[in-house]
Simulated scan of single mutants.
Amino acid sequence: MSEVDLTVHLTPDDIVRGLRSDVRTGLTATPKSLPPKWFYDARGSELFERITRLPEYYPTRAEREILATRSPEIASLTDATTLVELGSGSSEKTTLLLDALRQHGSLREIVALDVSESALRDAASALASAYDPVSVHGVVGDFTQHLALLPGSPVRLVAFLGGTIGNLVPAERAKFLSAIRDVLDDGEWLLLGTDLVKDPETVVRAYDDAAGVTAEFNRNVLHVLNRELAADFDVDAFEHVALWDEKEEWIEMRLRATRAMEVHVPVVGLTVSFVEGEEMRTEVSAKFREDEVAAELADAGFTLKHWWTDEEKRFGVSLSQAGAR
């Protein structure tokens, strides 16, 4: 089995400091908010895996349909020797790409970045076993902070899948895409998964399923704050809300207080009041159109080369190339 190289740029102490900072900022803002990355402790990750299998949640199936059809073409177009996956998790999403690149004969290296060291160790070990003798590098880091430190030899194909780009608001997306461009050499590649604008009913159902799994996932962030910051949120006193914002063309997940309450977060020295009906935003998930994706990529220094959708045109995967500067 190939040896796994693991680089740690994000320690548990860094994560705790980030959580404290985000909570202090978000809970003192008007309106209140929390970043979606804090959903994903072990329980949150398990709940999200359940979400991806729900009948209402189409993005995972739609993206997989595209990759199952187009991965050999992507391998041929890019001749990539290194696949870099951002936010890799278990790396299951990229198996189709890896298999295609290996079949194409170009794959030499895999770089997987994730915030969870334990999950990354497991994923990297599995990749090393499955794709021996390809070298595997695990990078414990945050894709909004540590892109400049990514290893990997050209020709690189950076994969950012799952529609996660939609969790960033436009200014954050511009900064993120420019940071990827700064890492890449001219002619290297970005494969981007984007959920597409469609009828609001379909989108809202995907984020407010009948079984209530997404509601539990949303409320899980309060469990994280109670455990990590000794907060005393009454989790059951908050209800899940999923709203379509027609102007911004994104879905918002919120937590709505069902009664007036006072919440203490002693680790950061906060006492926070909620009035009955007050909503706290926990996630934005933007939906995209092809021309908007092309424009945002162009602004960051990429040229959109190929655009694919699933058969029902619910989800888009774009292949873009870093342009000359």
Rank of each mutant, 00 (worst) to 15 (best):
D13L: 10
G89R: 00
A42L: 11
A42K: 14
E188G: 07
E262M: 08
P151L: 08
E276D: 03
T82G: 13
F176T: 09
V23C: 03
R70F: 06
S273V: 13
D13A: 15
V221F: 05
F48Q: 06
R64H: 12
E262K: 10
V197R: 08
T282E: 06
A100K: 05
L229H: 04
L243R: 15
P133L: 12
R20Y: 05
L225P: 00
M261F: 01
V275I: 13
D232E: 06
R53K: 13
M253I: 10
R17F: 08
T25K: 14
V197P: 01
I66E: 00
K175S: 15
P133N: 14
L97E: 05
F160T: 00
A159V: 02
L255R: 00
G187M: 09
L157G: 03
L107S: 01
H137K: 09
D22E: 11
A211F: 09
V203P: 00
D142Y: 10
T25I: 12
S125N: 14
E3Q: 14
V284N: 15
T271V: 12
T52E: 03
R259D: 01
L6D: 03
V268A: 04
V241G: 01
R325G: 12
Y57W: 03
A112G: 03
S76H: 15
V158K: 02
Q103R: 15
A148N: 11
L225R: 06
E92W: 07
R20P: 00
L98W: 10
F238V: 03
A29S: 15
N220Y: 14
S318Q: 08
D22H: 09
V265D: 00
V317W: 02
T214Y: 04
F288T: 04
Y58L: 05
N218W: 09
S153I: 06
V263F: 02
R254E: 12
S285T: 04
I110Y: 06
L177R: 02
K305A: 08
D41Q: 09
V4R: 03
G87T: 02
E92S: 14
V4F: 07
L120P: 02
R121W: 06
H137W: 15
L120R: 02
D122V: 08
D13R: 15
I66M: 00
V183R: 14
E296C: 05
S88N: 11
F217R: 07
L10V: 12
S76M: 14
P31D: 13
S45W: 04
K37T: 04
R102K: 14
A119P: 10
G26V: 05
G193Q: 00
T94L: 07
K247L: 13
A75P: 09
W307Q: 10
D186E: 15
E73I: 14
W244A: 06
P55M: 07
A123V: 04
I66S: 05
D185I: 05
H264Q: 14
M261H: 00
E290Q: 15
P72N: 06
T95K: 12
P154C: 05
H137Y: 15
M261K: 01
E92K: 11
L67P: 14
G212Y: 13
S178R: 15
G269C: 04
V317Y: 06
L255N: 03
